[in-house]
């Protein structure tokens, strides 16, 4: 199939540094192959900007195969763009038409300050993890297979939650910039497994406490987060977070 090329009109958020005013700037991306990924298209635009001696558009990316969670911007009003279950790097230009206008913005949340252009500081997520999203109990060497019995359905459920790559699209999509899906996925993942049991109550109290301290909003149960999650993590994880939090409260954990 011969490669098709399109021209798209970009409106990109440009902000020179943190706490500085930014604005939407228009760019024309000419002769873009529809086989390119969205980020490759931005690379082409940046090469052109660099040739002209202008400042390249800053954006985060790393693996470019949808597993690392580094990339992410709001494309035409939807975090990670129009495709369900995909990161920004997995979005391809064949999803756009010749002459289309595409707005590109960073995640917007008080807890995710913009560092430059499309890059944001997501260290709030790191601090939530550091507050309890781990297992500190010594579990010895690698266990023999099946020495810790976990029903397959439970293992699958825990794995579905563990699929979270911490990209932040859930916060970006939420009208309240809430981090409940992220925190809920981490809590669900560890609460379902025996290795997570010793710190189960303390973990949820600490992680929710940190989530609140970071300034994220409350959950309005709309499920926009679920719809944009590149790993399709459902909001049942948020209900599980509520149950785990209530359980910890019931047991007097603070």
């Amino acid at each position: 199939m011969p490669a098709k090329t399109i021209t798209v009109n970009l409106k990109v958020w440009r902000q020179p540094a943190k706490d500085q005013p930014g604005r939407m700037v228009d760019y024309v991306a000419k002769d873009i192959s529809t086989d390119m990924s969205f980020l490759e298209m931005l690379d082409v635009v940046n090469e052109d900007l660099i040739r002209k001696g202008e400042d390249a558009i800053a954006f985060d990316s790393d693996c470019r195969e949808g597993i690392c969670g580094a990339c992410g911007c709001v494309i035409n009003g939807i975090p990670h763009g129009p495709d369900a279950g995909a990161t920004t790097c997995q979005l391809h230009m064949r999803r756009f038409t010749d002459g289309q206008t595409i707005t590109v913005e960073p995640w917007r949340a008080k807890s995710f300050p913009v560092l430059k252009d499309l890059t944001v500081d997501r260290s709030a997520f790191d601090r939530i993890i550091a507050s309890g999203g781990y297992i500190s109990a010594g579990i010895g060497g690698a266990q023999d297979a099946n020495s810790i019995l976990i029903p397959r359905s439970i293992a699958e459920e825990a794995m579905d939650s563990a699929a979270c790559i911490g990209c932040g699209a859930c916060v970006a999509a939420c009208k309240n910039a809430a981090a409940h899906l992220f925190t809920g996925a981490k809590i669900t993942h560890l609460a379902l497994l025996p290795q997570g049991a010793p710190e189960r109550a303390l973990r949820v109290v600490r992680m929710v406490g940190q989530m609140e301290a970071e300034g994220f909003g409350a959950c309005s149960n709309e499920g926009e987060c679920e719809a944009v999650c590149p790993k399709l993590i459902p909001i049942s994880n948020i209900a599980k977070l509520v149950r785990e939090y209530t359980r910890a409260w019931w047991r007097g954990t603070t």
Binding site: M24, N76, G77, I78, E105, A109, G215, G217
Partner: peptide, 14 residues
């Protein structure tokens, strides 16, 4: 509190 969690709005959000 929810409004405070997103001080800067999106130019386009759907």
């Amino acid at each position: 509190q929810n409004q405070a969690a997103r001080p800067a709005k999106y130019a386009k959000k759907v």
